[in-house]
Design a protein around this nucleic acid. Sequence first.
DNA 1: TCTGGGGTCCTAGGACCC
DNA 2: TCTGGGGTCCTAGGACCC
Length: 419
Amino acid sequence: MSVFALIDCNSFYVSCERVFNPLMEKQPVVVLSNNDGCVISRSDEAKKLGIKVGVPIFKIQDIVEKNKVIAFSSNYNLYGDFSLRVMASLTLFCPNIEIYSIDEAFLDLSTLTIADKTAFGNLIKTKVKQWTGIPVSIGIAPTKTLAKIANHLAKKSTKLNGVFDLTNPNLIDIALERTSVYDVWGIGRQYGKLLSRANIKTALDLKNADDDWIRKHMHVVGLRTVFELRGISCLSTKDAFADKKGICTSRSFGKPMEKQEDIQQAVATFVVRCAEKLRKQKSAASAITVFIMTNKFADGPKYVNSKTIQLPVATNLTPELIKYAMRNLKAIFRKGYKYKKAGIIITDIISESNIQQDFWDHIDRDKNKKLLKIIDHTNKSLGRDKIKFAAQGYNKKWKMRQEHLSPNYTTQWKDLLIV
DNA sequence: TCTGGGGTCCTAGGACCC
DNA sequence: TCTGGGGTCCTAGGACCC
């Protein structure tokens, strides 16, 4: 029988911020999205105040002030580094690991002999906290979907103390009955509504649902979820380092931008980021999309547009990609709008070693490749954008609002904590 | 004043082939 | 009543995840 453990960090971003600020342990803390827009991570104290995930911070200003809620800007350098530490710790307990997201990982325990799974979970929990400072919750079950539910219950229950072993078949139906169908992994808003209308309200109802009905309305993906609830494992462990099939870099601007020149600089910077990611996984792309949009919430004229171009030769060379992106931007840019967001999407990704040459290609790709290798290396050791492309400009007018940014305690010498 | 930024997988349907 | 029967490839759109 298969056995999976899902390890999920509790309020991950908030927990990262708290590691170096232990005085905040009992205080309500939230972390904001890019541009200090929405709440994306909350401490238990903040959850108790009724602060919902996704709510724009300016809409809850009174709650924040009245309860002295501490807010942080997103610091992905910090969270990324803590994530690496947590995942490295988990690998010591089970090498068969799937890193599912920045704060979650599945361990495939099927081949391990573990007498007491709850004790094993508690050991992991204690050691990860001791080594990294991050609190985690653990759910153990025969399938990934059940492990998710076990994890959810472990988080909610005070009795379980953060670890729940749901491999006992007698417990499964009881657990499913207490789980809303909306809380099942793979059931989002739309399917949740659909199932509710069909009087399928709990995870147990879903487990006992009619296969043909599920197949018809939710296709094979939905049926897989149902099978998983029945203890039949349909989702195997995936390779966490598989190459990405699409790469996107986009940002909202700190303030609305009107001039084409300013947006060009932002877009060029997004291309630089995309190309870096592309080269990192040793891939090349054959299509590039540029999109721009005005603020969808504000009054005033609105405009959204995008353009995709197919490249004659798949590439990961930044200068070439910038050239195509600028051409696309020029085609869709309209004067007289206040732009709020722009982005680059790179698709049709293939391996660098499989690039099909073009007989009439006039770019010296070897020379460019050598140059970019040096630039990547320099920027990696000296800091992002130490060497940058002229198209990126110098005065980052579009820069994000980040008014509550914490130091990079673990990745910058100058931010090292002094005790 | 202020509303995030990444991803994946699947299906239906159209265009085409013999 | 009957209208051939197999395929492939591509794209848009919809669902989901964190």
